[in-house]
Design a binder for these strands. Structure first.
Length: 235
DNA sequence: TTAGGGTTAG
């Protein structure tokens, strides 16, 4: 089977990056990786990144950093995606300082953080209630000409909600809706805000109204409503 | 070919 895959360079890479790393099979991926190397394939930043991503998802921290070193020793420079994956992994594991050190490292190596990386940092800063740093970060993003997208809004509004500033979150959300840059995740945060203020019925009627103009709720939207109604003991 | 946000319950 492997040999068949080896005959199709592109097919192999897709298999390596998509099929294996995303389904918690990093060990199998690793075997394939070595087999490919043995057969003379030169791995790209994408294959190394896919492998590192797999290790992050499985919480295999030692492997993450070993492979980061390994790729660099093999003359392959990590790119913004590689770094962002590692930064998020460190945040998710409570290693804030280490993550921020990686952000500085990115900048030093002229691998400038992009909107996705800033969104990850923004979310983490909110979770840590570091409002001064958030304001500074938003200024930096603005200076770099990075316009916020729906992920940025989710980080901002979700963060405000998480630290108990429901009113501010609602205000910001209504402002976002008037500019039309929201998607289902951002709307779900809005429904959550309403439910938190014991306005589950209003959340439901807004959901229905939105559906009439093409809005497609998902399981999170419905779960948010259900949770709101249960908390209010309406049913 | 690689990446980021939102729900609950257990």
């Amino acid at each position: 089977m492997f040999l068949t895959i080896l005959n199709y360079n592109r097919g192999y890479r897709v298999m390596l990056s998509q099929a294996l790393c995303k389904t918690s099979r990093s060990y199998t991926t690793l075997q394939l990786f070595y087999l490919m190397k043995k057969k003379g394939f030169v791995h790209s930043v994408c294959s190394y990144t896919a492998l590192i991503y797999g290790f992050c998802r499985e919480g295999m921290q030692d492997n993450v950093f070993q492979w980061l070193d390994f790729m660099q020793n093999n003359g392959c420079k990590p790119n913004v995606i590689t770094y962002m994956i590692i930064v998020k992994f460190l945040f998710d594991n409570g290693k804030f300082k280490e993550a921020m050190n990686f952000v500085s490292k990115m900048e030093r190596e002229r691998c400038n953080p992009d909107l996705l990386t800033y969104n990850v940092i923004l979310r983490e800063l909110f979770h840590r209630d570091r409002l001064d740093d958030i304001s500074e970060l938003i200024q930096v993003m603005d200076q770099k000409g990075l316009s916020p997208d729906s992920y940025s809004y989710a980080a901002l509004c979700g963060g405000l909600l998480k630290i108990g500033k429901v009113g501010d979150a609602c205000e910001l959300l209504l402002d976002i809706f008037s500019n039309g840059a929201a998607d289902v995740a951002v709307y779900n945060i809005y429904f959550q805000c309403l439910c938190q203020e014991n306005k589950s019925r209003e959340a439901l009627s807004q959901l229905k109204r939105k559906m009439k103009v093409g809005f497609k709720p998902n399981n999170v939207s419905y779960n948010t409503m259900l949770s709101g109604f249960c908390k209010e003991k309406k049913y």
